[in-house]
């Protein structure tokens, strides 16, 4: 015994990563690189999460499909066991480790768990005044993201190019009417990016973005905002849209206040795009019989740690802790992996 080198025996320990979006991919890949065996659970039949829903990524407009292989683990693939199409609804701590459950049945065990269950898009139908699900030409930013790669035809109306397109910021963000107090952070830059994409597709179209505040926080975001104004002539109107209605030609009449002009405003648009916010995922794992949470998971110390309060060995990463962009999610996944590694290797 005494002659044995001081190798911490981590090889028999297993970490379960729940979720295979950017945060989960980063966490699983990092753990494998550290030589830890990973059981990787994903509710969908493939890895990549919501990256499959995106066309080009802000701010540099890299194709989402090009980013996916970059996120795939390069090393230690043999240590990762994928369980695709498998939902974990609950995790329970036991003296011997953590039990993963789906409904009442146990479907796995682990020594540590990384929750990377992500987010859901806000259901725009809850903001009835904008007419999503009622008027055909009111769509969400998620719908538009799927239409953009199809090309011009997807946005032509009755064979004609759209003359005006409106974007509504903060749909399901900063809105106590739908019980959401926080800012989803990423819709501003999504609106800027999509407005540019639409105006590149239809240079003659007038594009209006209705905003409360512009929050272009990330690297390159403010530059893209300026580019949208200066090079693409996109008009940013400060004021929240109050309601949308349909006219006889199935165009959308938008009412808002131009709060800088301090005057009410109306405009008719061919498409109205709602920039939907991010909500806690409804597929989120319930922790130890807790009431099913409809909140983002709060780490024990959000400044320095990904550890979930009161659940030693459980770490949260990515958008299940709050709105994050892709680089933040990746960093969060890697950070959680390292903390799980520390947890497994330190003396307990």
């Amino acid at each position: 015994m005494t002659n044995q080198p001081d190798i911490r025996r981590v090889d028999v320990r297993r970490v379960a990563v729940i979720g295979a979006g950017p945060a989960g991919m980063a966490a699983a890949g990092s753990l494998a690189s550290l030589g830890i065996a990973v059981d990787w659970y994903e509710k969908d039949p493939l890895t990549g999460g919501k990256l499959h829903d995106y066309y080009q990524l802000f701010p540099d407009r890299v194709r989402a499909s090009e980013v996916l292989p970059e996120l795939e683990s390069k090393s230690g693939k043999s240590l990762i066991t994928k369980y695709l199409g498998r939902t974990i609804s609950e995790i329970e701590r036991h003296p011997g480790g953590i039990v993963l459950k789906n409904g009442s049945g146990s479907c796995g065990e682990a020594d540590a768990v990384i929750l990377a269950t992500g987010f859901d898009f806000f259901d725009a139908r809850l903001k009835e005044e904008f007419g999503y699900g009622i008027y055909k030409h009111v769509i969400t930013s998620v719908d538009l993201e799927r239409m953009l790669p199809v090309g011009k035809d997807a946005l032509r109306r009755f064979g004609k190019d759209p003359a005006t397109v409106g974007f509504v910021h903060c749909v399901g963000s900063r809105d106590e009417q739908v019980g959401i107090s926080y800012c989803s952070r990423l819709c501003c830059i999504t609106g800027i990016k999509q407005a540019i994409e639409v105006s590149e597709m239809f240079p003659a179209a007038k594009v209006y973005n209705f905003y409360i505040d512009m929050r272009a926080f990330g690297q390159g975001f403010e530059e893209l905002y300026r580019k949208a104004q200066e090079e693409h002539g996109i008009r940013f109107i400060r004021g929240r849209v109050s309601e949308a209605s349909e006219d006889r030609e199935f165009r959308i009449r938008v009412k808002a206040e131009d709060t800088l002009m301090a005057r009410p405003l109306k405009v008719t648009v061919d498409w109205l795009v709602l920039l939907v916010g991010m909500t806690p995922s409804c597929t989120e794992v319930t922790l130890d019989h807790a009431e099913k949470q409809q909140e983002f998971i709060k780490p024990e110390n959000p400044l320095t740690s990904n550890a979930v309060r009161g659940m030693p060995g459980v770490f949260a990463a990515g958008c299940c802790t709050g709105p994050m962009n892709i680089p933040e999610s990746v960093a969060s996944g890697r950070a959680a992996a390292l903390q799980a590694y520390d947890y497994l290797t330190r003396d307990r």
Binding site: Q229, E230, D258, R263, L265, V267, T268
Partner: peptide, 28 residues
Amino acid sequence: RHIDMDRIDTRLADEISAHVRSWKACLN
């Protein structure tokens, strides 16, 4: 008091901003 964006004639502003493109970047 409504601003009716469908009927406003902004040609004067458009002609001027064609000369001074940086104007469009105004943050108010």
